Computed example of a mutant assay.
Amino acid sequence: MAQPIAYVMPGASASRLSLIGTVITFILFLLVMPSWVRERWRSRHPWLTLGIRSRRGEASPTACLIEGLLRSAGLLALICLPLLLGSWGRWLGELTAADALNALLLCFGLGLAEELVFRGWLWGELNALMGPREAVIGQAVIFSLAHTRFDQGVLPMLGLLTGLLLLGLILAVQRRLDGGSLWGCVGLHGGLVGGWFALRSGLLQMSPSAPQWLVGPGAAHANPLGGLVGIIALSILLWRQLTALASAARP
């Protein structure tokens, strides 16, 4: 559906056409989802089932979103502080208007889109097909495979798979802790993506000699979730979430 745009915009690059195609696909996804949830999941309130709306008396979407953003800021700080203290990075604090807009779009646009796909639709489908426990693990595995680059060697690949798997589990548990609301996941996921983009785009100057165990694999496109610090931080966060979930389940 995006290909005809090439005739209207002859100078459009393949990446731009791909992005336009992705946007069109997601719009179609949004249009289909309400009827899909009503028919397949037998739900009378699809957006409530998907976590976009909240029930009365539960945590507000705004509060969940802010808490998720704060968690993402804390995780990014664990990466930035060693960079600054270890002389592998220098704080610049410079961000153009275009980069700031891109960071916001990544945070709220990409964060919402991916959470609606993975922790909304996919989790619900797997839950209907496999059961709740298998669905949590299954969506995290698919999430990690969909985001891992397989051209960086075995150890970097395993690091990314582990970090992304942990993040997928954390986001699923976060939704449980938020009473089914998806907005805490949007804040955490989107904050990590948008925040890291903003840091790399001008807020923080990173040395090429920055260790991989800290910034993760990928060189110029490093992903800190695949580094040792990121994996440890995510493991601790998951452990704390599971402890809180267990405490909330006790009578």
Results as ranks from 00 to 15, higher is better:
R38G: 09
Q152Y: 09
W121R: 14
L165Y: 13
R38A: 14
F150V: 12
S60R: 14
P217G: 10
G153R: 02
I232G: 11
P208M: 09
Q152M: 10
L112Q: 14
N102Q: 08
R38H: 15
V37N: 08
M33L: 11
G226R: 03
I170Q: 09
G230H: 08
A172V: 04
G163F: 01
I24R: 03
P34R: 03
L145W: 13
A6H: 04
G195F: 14
T243L: 13
L182D: 01
G111D: 14
A198C: 13
L110A: 11
L165P: 10
L155M: 06
G124L: 05
V215P: 01
D99R: 05
V193T: 15
L95V: 01
A198L: 11
A98T: 06
V23L: 10
I236W: 08
A244G: 07
L188K: 06
F143W: 13
F108R: 14
A222E: 02
D178N: 14
G124I: 07
A198Q: 07
V136M: 14
V136R: 04
R90E: 09
C107H: 04
A222L: 01
R240W: 01
G168I: 04
S207G: 02
V229K: 11
L17N: 00
G202R: 02
I236V: 13
V23I: 15
L228I: 06
V8D: 05
W88H: 08
D178T: 01
R200H: 08
L65F: 12
V193A: 15
I20Q: 07
P156K: 06
G120L: 10
G57R: 03
P208K: 07
V215G: 12
G230A: 09
L214F: 06
P132F: 05
W196M: 05
M206P: 04
W239P: 05
E94V: 10
S181F: 00
G21N: 03
E125N: 08
W123F: 07
N127R: 14
D99L: 09
G216M: 02
C64T: 10
L85H: 08
Q241H: 12
I142G: 12
A59D: 02
S43D: 13
I232V: 15
G216F: 06
W121M: 14
P61Q: 08
T49I: 05
P211K: 03
L31R: 06
Q174A: 10
R16D: 14
G86D: 00
G89P: 00
Q205N: 13
L165R: 07
D178W: 07
R42V: 09
R42M: 09
S13K: 02
L75G: 01
L167P: 09
A128V: 10
G168Y: 02
S201I: 04
F29R: 05
S207M: 07
V37C: 12
L65W: 02
S235D: 06
L81I: 08
I66F: 05
L237F: 01
T49H: 15
H189I: 03
V193M: 09
Y7C: 04
A140H: 11
I232S: 13
W91K: 05
